[in-house]
Amino acid sequence: MPSQADEEAHQLSYLQKHMANILSLLADSTEGGDDDSLVLSVDKFEHLGFLIYFGEKGSAKISLSQNAPFFANSDPDMPAAPVPASQILDWLLQNISSTLEHIADRVSLKESGPSSSPDPDVQMADVGTGSLKPSVSHRGPSFIEGISKSSYVKQASDLKGTSVKVVNCHESVIYILAPLRYATIYGCSDATIVIGAVGKAIRVEHCERVHLITAARRICIANCRECVFFLGVNQQPLIVGDNHKLQVAPFNTYYSQLEEHMSQVGVDPNINRWDEPVALGLLDPHDSLSHPAGVSDVQAESASRVDPDQFTNFVIPNWLEIENAGPTKDNPFPLPDAYLASQQKNIKSLAEVKQILRETQLEENRKRELSSALHACFKDWLYASGNIRQLYCLQGE
């Protein structure tokens, strides 16, 4: 896996290469009709906020237009005049180049300096329009790699930094019950992954049949198949690349320290935009697996909502929380009405079944037959739903 600096540089280089095309898609044409006649309004310019933003670390997010010299301080009652796309392109490329230089300097300093030297963590999102003020992160990301057919738990005290990368894990349940700045899920399959609270962003890439449960400021999903995302997110989920059969649902779990962790990293439980995914980009017309030959300009596939009748809570075993218990006793994100009604219906149905079983008079041999039938049906459901992997934590070493 590439380092955090490598990933940042790669993402910025990609933006640098394609920014002209991105702006041309957003721009409006004036009378001339050539490239010099392309202009961007302030509203179109704000769409770039899906990809970049400017500001100091830890500060409140300011709209992209207020950081641009050509739109800043404009009167809301009198919208700013459109700006030539070429002028905006020059300004963006200048800032991207400056950030790439700082990343290169950081890597060079780290490689040539003593091993104890800090690793400044500069993001494009943290570059101001004036001087750069990188913050310091003393440790790199924690890696969780190659977990297979088991349960794996990490608390805040187990992590060496504030970012985590879960790589190539399969048929497992992974609990990361900690406050984080960044998280990456890469190359995993047939797994359930719980990520506590992520204050900056979580990225999920090249995963198949993964159930991800996370509370985060933002999430980016790329090149995934048949995954389900149970989200408490403050910004719209971003879906890019070649994705198939993705589903989104509201956040569905809790652990005792969750609200404390969310508060530490700035995740707001009162804002959940789980059901507003944005799919960006077009599929490669030369990829025969994505769509049939002869079809071009196919919009990237978005995600569908999980049917409320299929929505269930995910229970984190309380014995996994080996650290001090916190105050959280329930899901901090309010459920939408349809999902809340479905949840209450399931609770009522379960209570009715329990009552019927208690009141039914059966002979001992019939009780044993009923018990065996219930266990068999439950076991079939565990395997069919994939929930069997939640029982790995009960296995002995």
Rank of each mutant, 00 (worst) to 15 (best):
D34G: 12
I322L: 11
A338I: 05
H244T: 13
V228P: 00
I322S: 13
P114N: 09
S290V: 05
S172R: 04
L100I: 09
I356D: 05
N313K: 09
N73Y: 08
V248C: 08
H102Y: 14
A216G: 06
L246W: 04
E363D: 12
F311D: 01
P76F: 01
I176W: 01
D268G: 14
I144D: 02
R217P: 00
K57V: 08
D35T: 12
V173K: 02
H261I: 11
R305D: 12
A156H: 10
W274T: 08
Q395W: 07
C377S: 15
R366Y: 08
R203Q: 13
P332L: 00
C207M: 03
G281Q: 15
G55P: 05
E101S: 13
A222H: 06
V198A: 14
E397D: 12
C207Q: 04
A279W: 11
Y182H: 11
T214I: 02
S371R: 08
E145K: 14
S157C: 08
C207E: 06
D75G: 01
D309I: 14
R209C: 07
A341R: 06
R203T: 08
D105T: 09
D126H: 14
L391W: 09
G113P: 07
L258C: 09
F251W: 03
E369H: 06
G294R: 07
Y152R: 11
Q343S: 10
K57W: 12
R389D: 02
N365T: 14
H10M: 08
D121C: 11
T253E: 10
E208Q: 11
G266L: 10
S137P: 01
I239A: 02
P285H: 04
E226M: 11
A373Q: 13
A300V: 10
L26S: 09
L109Q: 13
K61E: 10
S108L: 15
V122R: 03
A300K: 01
N346Y: 06
N270D: 05
H18M: 07
T312D: 05
K354V: 07
A191P: 03
S24I: 01
R209H: 15
V83I: 14
I193S: 03
A300Y: 03
I193V: 11
S41G: 11
E145I: 15
V39S: 04
P120S: 13
K44M: 13
P332T: 01
D90Q: 12
A351I: 04
Y14C: 11
A178E: 02
G199Q: 02
A338R: 12
F230M: 05
F333L: 01
T184I: 08
S263T: 09
L25S: 15
F70N: 00
A5S: 13
M1T: 10
T99F: 00
H286W: 07
D34I: 05
F230L: 04
G232A: 03
P285V: 09
L212I: 07
I62D: 05
H375T: 05
P285T: 06
F229L: 12
G113V: 02
L320V: 09
G281M: 14
V278I: 14
E171R: 14
E364H: 12
L246R: 01
I202G: 03
D309S: 10
V265L: 07
D77S: 14
G326K: 00
H261D: 15
V198W: 00
K61H: 14
D75Y: 07
I213M: 13
V353W: 05
W91G: 10
